[in-house]
Design a protein around this nucleic acid. Structure first.
Length: 892
DNA sequence: CTAGGGGTAGAA
DNA sequence: TTCTACCCCTAG
């Protein structure tokens, strides 16, 4: 730029910086070097340029922040930024907030800031860079020398070619506000950007870039390095790859405004990934374009290839290193994001880039010494001298006209250049609006009914260009949502999909069943939601890819079904920001309408269904706990032993889920305390623990329960004797001596031994049929619960007791599957009345012992054997005890 | 499921 | 107090 006058040089530098800043893939490093090499820009221009660069830095931080968002602790409240703040101020704030530790700031720390919305907003509002505006002016014919420049630069041809290139190579007319790789191809004079060595694969480029030395290391070489800038290697392969992925990225960009999607799409890990990425790494270059195309700027070219001499020297070996490597749309995740550890501090490069840049911006921040920077990853292996920045050494021959990027038909003159550009860029609302990526809408007009939108009603960033569609309400809303995602953060937006995906993946990696209160199946459904989000994202991407119009396709604008890509009566998903527009028939059965008639696309419908399920599950869980608490609170009569066994059973419950675990804790707390209080208390309600251990091992199958239920019903006519359940048709009579002998109990016969079916039947026949039926059911579920029954205060208040029992049964369904209810030991009233053994019984017992010595179920067999002799209340246990006593007596 | 130890409560 | 029936618990 030596041949330029000062103003021309400044403009050239500014163009360069802005253009470079517009490339997300342009290393910030490089950008800062260029800034460093640039002359001091006038306040107006310098400020604007710094703003662009600051935005670029924030985007970089934002991309890091995206990862940090996965950190659970980072998912809390974030510090947002006033959208009216400038990028520079925000960046400054972040730097200051880190007390200069930005070099060491971890992603965790970074996650405190909610940078993304701010960046998205700024990006949405950020006008095109000067070069692009110039190009547009030429293409639009608004440039006074449009024809000449277009012809000379073959801009039209370039554009056409670009359009002909296929689905994806449309970045030159994309809505993306920044330059894309192909933008540059069109914008930048190729003559000045064709290094000698361009065919060298870029495989190592990322690698090399990832270990770039800090600026300090390159001190003294900055300007030297500037002499060899960039825009390297690009081959057909890359271009093809680029095209292939372009549409996806466009869509993604539209929704996320960040590199986030790219991260998701192409998760890279470590060097390998970086190297692998080289294959699809399409560097920013003009090489792909014919020179005549690349001569777009004609005489007004900003960059000259005059630097080649110097550059070539360096490029011999390093032409592929330290270059701007990827076009904006490269799917390759920026290296800054290649790490997965959210807590990983920013790399040296990342940090220094930010800090260095900021030092340039405001001088308020001094880069930290290289040595003080925690290095991770690879040590810098490239000498600083190898960091070469190609900078035009030949001044572009700027003319006033060339510099004009105005819609005016009259050329501006003289010093208006600055003013004009400044105004155009940042001061003129219309231009700013035009310059936003929403100009895509111009290309997406669906029909002629779309009138120019009223600028007064359009939000900032929403196209007000004359050719922009008059977008229907919903469409406008979408635009606003898209352009201002921070304003209308939509839970179902693509952003959220991606967040969900990331969050879900992070969750999968960390804790599949981490939530204490939610069972794993809910986590499973959450994962499923993540999957849905993924699928939706994939679907959207696929639709973008196969879309006939490879430009950004807002299907709501196109009025085409996203499924069949045909017009017709379309349904728009009612979920905010869901971009799905489909025919009703294309929605399939999953598509649904809510009560209000709102349509939900299959993805959202499924997600909603899952959310409803999870909510219902939560409510169920809460209700369950409340019920348990209610029962326990009201069960002072609950025996300590029962509580203990209950707890034990829960502890051993194989099917115990999180809810039960929570309840178990409650039980333990309550009953361990209550035990003391209830010590020795009489209880009316008891649960037989006789078979606790067995019960713990038994999972009552529902079918089995049902079978038992039927069997019991038929066999015992509602007798709740548990023995019968265990032993099928075993004789039930006589097992409830108390019932028989006392003849006072038992309206509720689910008595422990349950053997006096006769009485039970009689009693049941008397009353409580309905209750008994319910009790039957309950008891079938936890089969052998010794009842409460026998004495029940002898009050005969069956109903109350039954209800209580019923409640307990309901409760116990969850935890207890008792096989054999028993009477409570602590209840004297429940103790059977002693029934003295008769000599006949003793004799029969002796016979039985002799007849069934050491046999299994010996006592039961003896009981059956002496059924006619033994009192009906006798149990096998009674026999055993009696025999023991008899033995003792004999031994004496 | 049995065996055995041990506790409890009611009757004698 | 003792006896005895009933009951609980545990180990195998």
């Amino acid at each position: 730029m030596d041949n330029m006058n000062v103003s021309e040089s400044i403009i050239a530098w500014r163009w360069l910086i802005e253009a470079m800043a517009s490339f997300k893939e342009v290393d910030l490093f490089l950008l800062c070097d260029v800034m460093e090499a640039a002359p001091e820009l006038p306040d107006g221009l310098g400020k604007n340029t710094r703003e662009i660069v600051a935005l670029r830095c924030l985007e970089q931080l934002s991309s890091v922040n995206e990862i940090a968002s996965d950190v659970p602790s980072a998912q809390g409240l974030k510090v947002g930024f006033d959208l009216s703040e400038s990028c520079e101020d925000v960046l400054q704030r972040i730097v200051e907030d880190t007390s200069g530790r930005i070099l060491r700031i971890s992603r965790m720390e970074l996650s405190r800031w909610d940078i993304q919305p701010f960046v998205a907003h700024k990006r949405a509002c950020m006008p095109k860079c000067a070069l692009e505006q110039l190009k547009d002016a030429i293409l639009d014919g608004t440039h006074p020398y449009a024809d000449f420049l277009r012809d000379k630069g073959h801009l039209a041809t370039s554009l056409e070619d670009a359009n002909l290139m296929g689905d994806s190579n449309h970045d030159s007319v994309t809505t993306r506000p920044c330059f894309t790789g192909t933008d540059v191809q069109n914008e930048v004079n190729p003559d000045i950007l064709i290094p000698e060595k361009r065919n060298k694969p870029l495989g190592e480029n990322h690698h090399d870039r990832a270990i770039l030395p800090t600026k300090r290391d390159r001190s003294g070489s900055a300007r030297e390095a500037m002499a060899c800038n960039v825009h390297e290697d690009c081959n057909g392969e890359l271009n093809s790859e680029l095209q292939h992925t372009n549409a996806k990225r466009l869509k993604q960009y539209e929704s996320s405004g960040s590199q986030f999607v790219e991260q998701n799409q192409f998760p890279l890990h470590g060097n390998e990934a970086l190297e692998d990425s080289s294959g699809r790494d399409a560097p920013v270059t003009t090489r792909e374009l014919p020179e005549n195309e690349l001569a777009t700027m004609g005489e007004s070219r900003v960059l000259e290839n005059g630097f080649d001499d110097e550059c070539n020297k360096n490029n011999d070996d390093h032409s592929n290193k330290d270059m701007v490597q990827t076009p904006c749309n490269s799917p390759v995740m920026p290296k800054i994001n290649s790490g997965d550890e959210a807590n990983q501090p920013l790399s040296v490069d990342e940090a220094n880039v930010v800090s260095n840049h900021f030092a340039q911006l405001g001088g308020a921040f001094e880069p930290v010494e290289q040595n003080s920077v925690a290095l991770h990853g690879k040590e810098p292996t490239k000498d600083s001298s190898k960091l070469e920045v190609q900078v035009p050494v030949e001044e572009p021959k700027l003319t006033e006209d060339d510099c004009t990027v105005s819609n005016r038909s009259q050329p501006i003159t003289g010093d208006e250049i600055y003013k004009n550009q400044s105004e155009n860029f940042y001061d003129a609302p219309s231009l700013m609006q035009d310059a936003t990526r929403d100009d895509t809408h111009q290309n997406l007009s669906v029909d002629g009914t779309n009138n120019a939108s009223d600028p007064s009603t359009e939000p900032i960033g929403v196209p007000s260009h004359g050719t922009v569609d008059k977008i229907p309400t919903k469409e406008s809303k979408r635009i606003r949502e898209r352009d201002f995602p921070f304003q209308e953060r939509n839970p179902m937006s693509n952003d959220r999909y991606q967040q969900n995906i990331i969050a879900g993946e992070a969750k999968e990696n960390t804790n599949d069943c981490g939530e204490e209160e939610m069972p794993c199946d809910i986590d499973g459904y959450r994962n499923e939601m993540v999957d849905v989000d993924k699928k939706k994202l994939e679907f959207l991407q696929a639709q973008c890819t196969v879309g006939r119009d490879s430009l950004i396709v807002d299907w709501t604008e196109k009025y085409l079904c996203m499924k069949c890509n045909k017009a017709g009566s379309l349904l728009v998903c009612s979920t905010n920001n869901c971009q799905l527009v489909i025919h009703e028939k294309c929605g399939g059965s999953l598509a649904k309408f809510d009560d209000k008639g709102n349509f939900y696309c299959p993805f959202c419908a499924y997600s909603l269904a899952i959310m409803e399920y999870i909510e219902a599950k939560k409510r169920s869980s809460v209700a369950n706990k409340e019920l348990a608490a209610f029962i326990l609170m009201g069960s002072k009569r609950y025996p300590k032993e029962s509580a203990r066994s209950l707890i034990e059973e829960i502890n051993h419950s194989p099917g115990g889920n999180a809810d039960e675990n929570v309840l178990r804790k409650n039980l333990e707390n309550e009953h361990l305390g209550a035990r003391e209080k209830n010590e020795g208390n009489l209880v009316e309600l008891s649960v037989n623990e006789e078979d606790d251990q067995q019960c713990q091992k038994i999972k009552v199958d529902q079918a089995e329960i049902s079978a038992q239920h039927n069997n019991n019903d038929s066999n015992r006519g509602g007798c709740h004797g548990s023995e019968g359940e265990r032993e099928g048709g075993e004789k039930m009579a006589g097992e409830c001596p108390s019932a028989r002998t006392e003849g006072q109990q038992n309206e509720v016969p689910h008595n422990a031994s349950g053997r006096n079916s006769d009485v039970n039947l009689v009693n049941e026949g008397k009353s409580n049929t309905g209750i008994q039926r319910k009790l039957l059911k309950d008891q079938d579920i936890y089969t052998k619960k010794r009842s409460v029954t026998e004495n029940h205060d002898s009050s005969g208040d069956d109903s109350e007791n039954d209800d209580h029992e019923s409640n307990i049964s309901d409760y116990c369904i969850l935890f207890r599957k008792r096989k054999k209810p028993r009477s409570d030991p602590a209840t004297p009233q429940k103790r059977r009345k002693k029934v003295p053994w008769t000599t006949e019984e003793e004799q029969k017992l002796k016979e039985g012992v002799q007849k069934f010595p050491d046999e299994k179920n010996m006592w039961k067999k003896i009981l059956e054997f002496g059924d006619s002799v033994f009192m009906e209340g006798r149990t096998a246990i009674d026999l055993k005890d009696k025999w023991r006593n008899m033995c003792k007596g004999m031994s004496k």
